[in-house]
């Protein structure tokens, strides 16, 4: 059995979890395995949606103690479920929560762990994973040697595929709740915005933005495209008040959106490492020799302060 740890947001299955589930279904079909989707929280309303993406079984841990996320609490719950169901594989989406809990579960189970995988297959019943290393400057094929295998899937890489199954739900025993650490509060910086690592469209600014206030231009374009704003290390380090959480690159976020628009970014090795997995890259830069043009699908040599508002206006005009 493959167990997929799934996350809900506002009663809906989160997209990165739907991606993990879809990939689990594909793997399970190739190896004659069952897929169970596991949900934990004060409420599991919305978890039925997992059946649409191929879950044969939906496991629900519903308890007041699970209202707030706890690394140790959730890890114990997940490890117990893997053992109780004799699952051989545990997948989670490579979200903040997935990457917090999955390695902890792996340690509890003595299982090998691969983070942020971009490809999965089964060989002799065991998982094999392809994953970026050195912030995407290289890719590794990995073999697990442990009986149980744990992996997180990189968001935006695996396609979401519907594969409806009959709805079968089971409750999991509720934990006692004497957790060692608990999330007390979510301090939202940008309400409703998705994280860079999960965004489908990213508009990023670099040193060519000249000052922090000019990022408003990128926000407008990102809004028109339904995307989010990122930044290069040069922009974050420039003292313009751009938070590090927005940084794309080797020492920031590694992203893989469908569309990445780099504005005033030269394309330093350490930035490219973080975004070269994007499906389509657009570069807007006034320097025709900027290295970013070597990896751009579409390049515009020009003034971003002229081009970006034109793009925004044109997109808005269409709506």
């Amino acid at each position: 059995m493959i167990i997929v740890f799934c996350e809900l947001k506002d009663g809906r299955l989160r997209k990165p979890s739907a991606e993990s589930l879809s990939e689990a279904r594909r793997l399970a079909d190739s190896g004659g395995l069952q897929v169970a989707a596991l949900f934990a929280g004060a409420s599991c309303i919305g978890s039925e949606e997992a059946a649409r993406y191929g879950a044969d079984l939906i496991l629900q841990a519903e308890a007041p103690a699970l209202a707030a996320y706890s690394s140790d609490g959730f890890a114990a719950l997940l490890a117990d479920a893997v053992q109780a169901r004799r699952a051989s594989i545990l997948l989670a989406a490579g979200t903040a929560m997935g990457k917090d809990v999955a390695p902890r579960v792996a340690a509890r189970l003595g299982a090998g762990y691969a983070a942020d995988v971009t490809g999965l297959s089964l060989a002799g019943g065991r998982l094999q994973a392809t994953r970026p290393m050195f912030a995407g400057k290289a890719f590794a094929d990995c073999e697990f040697t442990s009986p149980i295998q744990v992996a997180t899937t990189r968001p935006n890489v695996f396609p979401v595929a519907e594969s409806p199954r009959p709805l079968v739900q089971e409750a999991l025993p509720a934990p006692a709740g004497d957790f060692k650490a608990v999330v007390k509060e979510l301090l939202a910086k940008s309400a409703g915005k998705v994280d860079l690592t999960e965004a489908d469209v990213i508009v990023s600014g670099g040193r060519g933005m000249k000052e922090g206030a000019n990022f408003k231009l990128l926000e407008d374009l990102a809004d028109a495209l339904g995307g989010v704003v990122g930044a290069s290390r040069a922009a974050v380090d420039a003292g313009w008040g751009i938070p590090h959480a927005m940084q794309v690159g080797q020492t920031g976020k590694v992203v893989s959106p469908s569309l990445y628009i780099a504005c005033g970014i030269s394309g330093a090795i350490q930035h490219v490492a973080g975004m070269s997995g994007s499906k389509v890259i657009v570069a807007i830069n006034k320097d025709p020799e900027a290295p970013i043009f070597r990896i751009a699908t579409y390049g515009i040599v020009g003034d971003l302060f002229e081009i970006v508002p034109l793009l925004t206006a044109s997109l808005r005009g269409q709506h």
Binding site: Y113, K137, F139, C142, F144, I295, T297, Y298, G299
Partner: peptide, 18 residues
């Protein structure tokens, strides 16, 4: 519990268009 069997460099992106 896990080992790398092959390490490869990512494929070069196809030539873009200006």
């Amino acid at each position: 519990t896990i080992r790398v069997s092959t390490l490869t460099l990512p494929p070069a992106r196809p030539e873009g268009r200006k």
